[in-house]
Amino acid sequence: MSKRSCEVSWKAFLREENLPHQWCPGCGYGVILKSMLYAFEKGGLAPKDVVVVTGIGCWGKADDYLYANTVHVTHGRALPVATGIKVANQSMKVIALMGDGDSATIGGNHLIHSSRRNIDVVALVANNLNYGMTGGQYSCTTPLDSRTSTSWYGDPEPALDVCRLSETAGASFVARTTVYHATTIEKYIGMALSHEGFSLVEVISPCPTYFGRYNKLSKASQMLKWLKEQSIPIERVKDLSEEDLKEKFVTGVFADKKGHSFLSRYREIQSRARNELESE
């Protein structure tokens, strides 16, 4: 139910003239986009308050459907560009929209250090478990042994846990959900938007066209239900064995720590530097 009273409705962000969008039937990215716009509305944001940085890939097309300040950059580099934007223009809400390839495979180094630095940026990772845009190859989050266009005989590489990686590296807000649990997407994005420091929200999304078709989940609702079956709330993790958790998606809030963001620390550095300059 989208009836929300507030000055700027979520529809002010939606570039309707560019719909229908390019994502495949049943792809979850339209749901993630809508949830983000709901979160913008609930957060009292207007298009001019927001800078959306997108990378390259299916999710990277999201800025085509937005009224906001948008920056479409090279593959894997949305986070460092977002970092520069935020540092130079601190009143803006800066959100980096990245796929699993963008954020954790080619962009993995930036994900680690953006988390460690705890830069005041929101990373919204849409994880469809493969490289959809280029035809369904496996990425670093593709489940072990899955078939893809480049792993016909099974993916030989275990998947990376994006949330654990980001949390371990120092991100102060980390949460994962799936497109099946649609209402939590908006909730977590809302929490991320109001969080001081680096916040990462990962949303696992169905990819019926490639990952689904290669892994007997080609019907959109079928893959959505599969996401539900594969999800384990983080609260229940402690009473489950390693075996039970294999290839499962742990959902929920991994970290929600108050504390120093990069910008709050750097403001202290600027005051020390100014004092030294004045004393010269």
Partner: peptide
Amino acid sequence: IGCGTCELRCPDFAIEVE
């Protein structure tokens, strides 16, 4: 019953309930 599941889950902004 106006639960809005269709609108929430539609990936294509193609359906609304009021």
